[in-house]
Amino acid sequence: MTNLYTYSTELLLLLFLIITFLQSAYDKLADWKGNLSWLKSHFAETPLKNMVPLLLGTVLVTELVAGVLCAIGWYLLCFQGESGTALTGAIVACLALLMLLFGQRMAKDYDGARTIAIYFVPAIFLVFLLQG
């Protein structure tokens, strides 16, 4: 129980990333066709227009890996005080967010890019905390 208090900030940030990425991955899996259709129109005027299915799959896998690593990392940090898996999960989460940011910028969706930047702040802060 001591780790719950010692690493409370890290554990809460991990929960934030777990919810964010596992829900997002689930949404992509549950409504693949809907997401693909929307993204094809979103990227229709960009150099990415012919790669949307591949990119959606890549983002899905990255989000799933980030969420699972963060969940395993949460358990290990909470019950064993081991932060390596949590750090890896946080780094993968940052990479997923950077992929999403790149896509939003390519589509010239600056409001969407701003939203991604908001998610990036706690993710990169978690990386900072877990490195120490």
Rank of each mutant, 00 (worst) to 15 (best):
residue 24 S to I: 01
residue 25 A to E: 11
residue 25 A to T: 13
residue 27 D to P: 01
residue 28 K to L: 05
residue 30 A to I: 01
residue 31 D to K: 14
residue 32 W to R: 05
residue 34 G to S: 09
residue 39 L to G: 01
residue 42 H to N: 05
residue 44 A to Q: 05
residue 44 A to Y: 02
residue 44 A to L: 00
residue 48 L to Y: 12
residue 48 L to K: 03
residue 49 K to L: 03
residue 49 K to Y: 05
residue 49 K to Q: 09
residue 53 P to Q: 06
residue 53 P to S: 01
residue 54 L to N: 01
residue 57 G to R: 03
residue 57 G to P: 10
residue 58 T to N: 11
residue 58 T to R: 00
residue 59 V to H: 04
residue 61 V to C: 04
residue 62 T to I: 10
residue 63 E to V: 00
residue 63 E to S: 08
residue 64 L to G: 15
residue 66 A to D: 05
residue 72 I to G: 03
residue 74 W to F: 15
residue 74 W to P: 02
residue 75 Y to K: 01
residue 75 Y to M: 06
residue 76 L to T: 07
residue 83 S to H: 10
residue 85 T to S: 00
residue 89 G to R: 02
residue 89 G to S: 07
residue 90 A to T: 01
residue 92 V to G: 08
residue 94 C to W: 03
residue 96 A to I: 10
residue 97 L to S: 07
residue 103 G to F: 03
residue 104 Q to W: 00
residue 104 Q to M: 12
residue 105 R to G: 04
residue 105 R to M: 15
residue 107 A to T: 06
residue 108 K to A: 14
residue 109 D to P: 08
residue 111 D to V: 13
residue 116 I to A: 09
residue 117 A to K: 02
residue 118 I to L: 04
residue 121 V to F: 14
residue 122 P to I: 04
residue 123 A to H: 13
residue 124 I to G: 07
residue 125 F to D: 04
residue 125 F to A: 15
residue 125 F to E: 07
residue 126 L to V: 04
